[in-house]
Nucleic acid binder design. Sequence first.
DNA 1: ATAAGTTTGTGAAGAATTTCACAAGCCTTC
DNA 2: GAAGGCTTGTGAAATTCTTCACAAACTTAT
Lengths: 213, 213
Amino acid sequence: MTLPANKRIAESTVRRLSMYLRYMESLDEVGQQTASSDELAQLCGTTPAQVRKDLSFFGSFGKRGLGYPVHELTERLRDILGLGHAWQVVIVGAGKIGSALAEYRGFRQRGFQVVGVYDKNPKKIGRAWGDATVRDIDSLAEDVVAHHVDIAVIAIPADDAQEVVDRIVLAGIRAILSFAPTSLHVPPHIAVKTVNMAMELEGLSFALTNRVE
Amino acid sequence: MTLPANKRIAESTVRRLSMYLRYMESLDEVGQQTASSDELAQLCGTTPAQVRKDLSFFGSFGKRGLGYPVHELTERLRDILGLGHAWQVVIVGAGKIGSALAEYRGFRQRGFQVVGVYDKNPKKIGRAWGDATVRDIDSLAEDVVAHHVDIAVIAIPADDAQEVVDRIVLAGIRAILSFAPTSLHVPPHIAVKTVNMAMELEGLSFALTNRVE
DNA sequence: ATAAGTTTGTGAAGAATTTCACAAGCCTTC
DNA sequence: GAAGGCTTGTGAAATTCTTCACAAACTTAT
């Protein structure tokens, strides 16, 4: 497996690892044998020192004078990120966002298996969504237990989010990706990521307003 | 306006300001008069010291012994974030993600006016999307110039993204919100935010894999 | 008015992250 | 096989971000 000693790895580092993987994959497809930290940095918009430091947390994958072996590093990055595992995912909320997500190819491609879609609207229950059928959100918790679901994607209104999260946390979910524009309260052992459109837009608005000319 | 002296404001601070705004708005709706840094911190999942420090970059809005005046701080946060302005937004890519975005109410609510949706697929051109009609992506650059578009939301495949970005940058776009899973190269005066689903999922996968028990 | 109880604003300390800079190692060429 | 040219891996320095801790200021109660 990976060998991260016992250091805590920064979230920023993990995000970059994900980016390195993406570009290493594309170099691998093209048949490129090696890539230097400088090349990878340019592709990813970071610095060579940053690339080397990030990778060094997990081992020495490169050869001095030559760079990193593309194919091998690709596999190592997949290992490090835990992408060998077939994670079980449920999508909560069969609205527009849930819909876009359910059809998102990236899930399958990267080993995330969408095993269920849930909604509380009776009109939506029973409809086919991708490979799954929309089920009643009241059966979510028991399904999480029964199918050992690892990750829940939350695509419901902010007001409903915390209640649903509480229920699936009790049911044993281990990670949550939320699109609800609210901060979620969970026990410390649960991994949570939040994607917040409004926050991103407001970040741009701020940049446009407080531009340093 | 805002008075950020000449310090650079950290991106993490701006993200929190956006969160503070959201919760202040909801407190304001409920009619609450004041809120302490401690209350706001608990709502947002941060610390009181962090709240005070963040706000202090822009002025002194609170009263000692009492807290922050909810309604006033709400307005100040809107000012700081530049939300008084009616930003002109185009959405590039009329696929699933573009669709979910076009119907996203948060845009209008926060002063982002979607003035156009673009795609290169002839089958999609001409269809009505929300208030807008899908137009040919070849007319994007001239429309950006003509309508002084501020922000472009990029919801097209990674392979096409850089080319489109290059064109709208030339046309004078000032900010970009990208959903394409690739790093975009732009001049330094252009603000860019990237939302990358795969990166978030892989961050969760990493957390699940390298869990510190 | 005074005292007791809160809460802000902010320098300073501490922690975390990024960048620097260079020895060490590998490849290629002569 | 020695020399020259690259590139990694990594301590140390620099920078950035967060937390601490406390004086100052305000409110309420008596």
